[in-house]
Simulated scan of single mutants.
Amino acid sequence: MGNIDTNYCYSFPAVRGQQAGKPFYIATCPLRIIPKIFMYDEEEVPAELRSQRTLNKSRIPEMTRYLLDSPDDYVFSALTASVGTDVEFKNSDENPNLGTLVVPMDAQILINDGQHRRAAIEEAIKENPELGQDNIAVLFFVDEGLKRSQQMFADLNKYAVRPSSSLATLYDHRDQASEIARYLAMNAKPFIGFTEFERSSVSVRSNKVFTLSGIKQANRTLFGKGSKEGFSEEEKTKAVAFWNKVNDNMPEWQQVQNKTLSAPEFRQEFLSAHGIGLQAIANVGHYILELEENEQNQLLAKLGKINWLKSNPAWSNRAMQHGRLSKAVSNIFLTAMQIKREVGITPTLEELEKENKLLNA
């Protein structure tokens, strides 16, 4: 690395490290220059010459909104880039691995990881230039050409595993549907102590019954909410009251809570121990919540009279397909239709048509 003309360079405070025998640098860069140094022009670069997947344009507005809506508490992880070998590292006197990374303005820099963050930063700064003062960490690998960049992209993404939807729900404090699911898991009788917080399914021997993501979905159904809609405090209170009332009318739920029935046995035998049961009850609940309290109580009382055993022929082709539970949207609807009949709710003509169509499909 020879000396370079620093008049046409970017200088970043950086730490030098070594990986696989090659130097890399962790630098802090002001957000405002991220769009300038990371050119991203996929139209001109065919896939085999790129080191990235093409930009998924639909993700950018969402990420941009996130930056703009939470300028005081957003968090963006480091970008990873490959830079040509013509960079210079000026180390400090005290420590040979602390110093300044000098990158020529015309250096070719390829983003290996973080292109959507880069695009969102560019858009957000247009709307709120003050964000440009913030910094982001950039991990620079000194690149020996494109082949290495493509391999880096493959390696970086090969071992990135998406968190389960239950864990994502547990940790997402911005999403109100997740917020209310966590609240119910701690405060509503059927869920206290019986919620699987980390996985999207309950393992066979687990002493848990419902998943956090299942509770979140059921709640959306209960209030007829889309995936982007929030919840009011009143709905939060309503939800706890509803699930507590359902609990009072579900003998098997109570047996599990009183330890007279084990959770694994319950799940093995009963439809009401699964996400589809919860969703279908929520589907019927959406209708029940519109009624006067007296009527609500009468209908909910009939839930306990239903035969929730998976072996009940009434569930065949509704919740059960070829002897197995099915969580498909159509199966949830068909199961809810059966519950409506059993508690004495008259289905609408539209619902009957849809049911016929699905059962004869």
Rank of each mutant, 00 (worst) to 15 (best):
S51R: 00
Q52L: 03
R53Y: 04
T54N: 03
T54R: 07
K57E: 09
R59E: 01
E62F: 11
R65H: 09
R65C: 05
R65L: 09
L67F: 11
L67N: 11
L68H: 13
L68I: 08
D69T: 09
S70I: 05
D73W: 00
D73T: 00
Y74V: 00
Y74P: 06
Y74Q: 03
F76T: 10
F76A: 08
A78M: 14
A78D: 05
A78T: 13
A78V: 11
L79R: 13
T80L: 04
S82Y: 11
T85H: 08
D86Q: 15
V87N: 09
E88A: 12
E88M: 14
E88K: 12
F89L: 00
F89G: 00
N95M: 12
N95C: 14
P96Y: 11
N97P: 03
N97R: 11
G99F: 14
L101R: 13
V102H: 04
V103F: 06
V103D: 07
P104K: 13
M105G: 09
M105A: 09
A107T: 12
A107M: 11
I109H: 07
N112F: 07
D113T: 01
D113W: 00
I121S: 01
E122M: 05
E122V: 02
E122N: 10
E123L: 08
A124M: 04
I125N: 11
I125V: 13
K126R: 13
K126T: 12
N128F: 10
L131S: 06
G132W: 00
Q133K: 06
Q133H: 09
D134S: 08
N135M: 11
I136D: 07
A137F: 10
V138K: 03
V138R: 03
V138P: 04
L139H: 13
F140V: 01
D143I: 02
D143W: 02
G145Q: 01
G145N: 02
L146W: 06
L146K: 10
K147I: 12
R148H: 12
Q150A: 14
Q150G: 10
Q151N: 14
Q151M: 10
M152Y: 01
F153E: 05
L156D: 05
K158E: 10
Y159W: 09
A160M: 02
A160E: 10
V161N: 08
V161M: 06
V161Q: 15
R162G: 11
R162S: 15
R162K: 15
P163Q: 13
S164E: 13
S165H: 13
S165K: 14
S166V: 02
T169G: 08
H173M: 04
S178W: 01
S178V: 04
E179F: 14
E179M: 15
I180F: 12
Y183C: 04
Y183I: 08
Y183M: 07
L184Y: 03
